[in-house]
Amino acid sequence: MRGFTLSVPTYGQRLLWLALLMGAIIAFDAHVEYGELPKANTVSVLGLLLPLEWADSRLVFWSRAIFLLSGTLWGLRIGVPWSSWGATFSYTLLISVYWENLPWFRHKFVLPNLIFFVLAFWYQFYRSEIRAARDWKDFFRTPLEPSWVSSLSSWSLVMFYGLSGVSKVIGGWTLLDGTSLQLWFHLMVEPGHPLREAVIHSQGLAAFLQTGAWLVELSSFLVLFWGWYRLPLAVLLSCFHLTVQWTFGIPFLTNIPLIWAILDPRRKEDRN
């Protein structure tokens, strides 16, 4: 059978509102504080296209302002699909400028960006239907959400976490012997933390935690085949982020609501 199944847009619209909210929260973390350091590499697609001189604090300010404005309009379904693209591109520009000026990487911005692209394309392809349903005040009862909105959102999540697991395999299997996790705990976790002493004195515990985290990331691929795995994966990834926050203080908390909205374990049908 040709084409994609259409359903009422509760999944996509809920995900949109949540992604816009999370994006708005983390948009304020972007800056060009390290812009005085020598330029090293191009680390974004927009960095290949834009001259470096543009990547300054004014661009950060304006791209954030445009994102907040067009994101609000998008969330209210005003001026679509232009507001969708305005929000998507201004967010991409904002974070690209941030990455281009960083002497490290910040990955919490990636997942919302991929979701923005999926949802912006949805609004692009279905702009007429969305505008008509909005004008008729019947948006949430009109079947105008194609099945690929949920499947590509899940795909984006799987690529983000699954390929993170793959990158660790490429880094070498010795990663799983626990040594590096012990060193990171010793270096980065505050003395007195309840888990710190246990990990730095037990290579077995470190190997268990490190292998476990790696398996959780890699297991993301399973939801592409097994719909029932959405709930376990949402729980495992949430626990993973909470543990990373609790120990290393690396803030990925804005990904947790997105994980639950994307995987949407309450969803009955399996459309992966």
Binding site: T42, H107, S167, W184, I250
Partner: peptide
């Protein structure tokens, strides 16, 4: 992500993907 590792917004989220001794 497989080819470039990091080229925002494409990313293999490579944090902690090394194994120092």
């Amino acid at each position: 992500p497989l080819l470039a590792t990091e080229l925002y917004p494409f990313s293999a989220a490579s944090m902690f993907a090394h194994s120092p001794k």
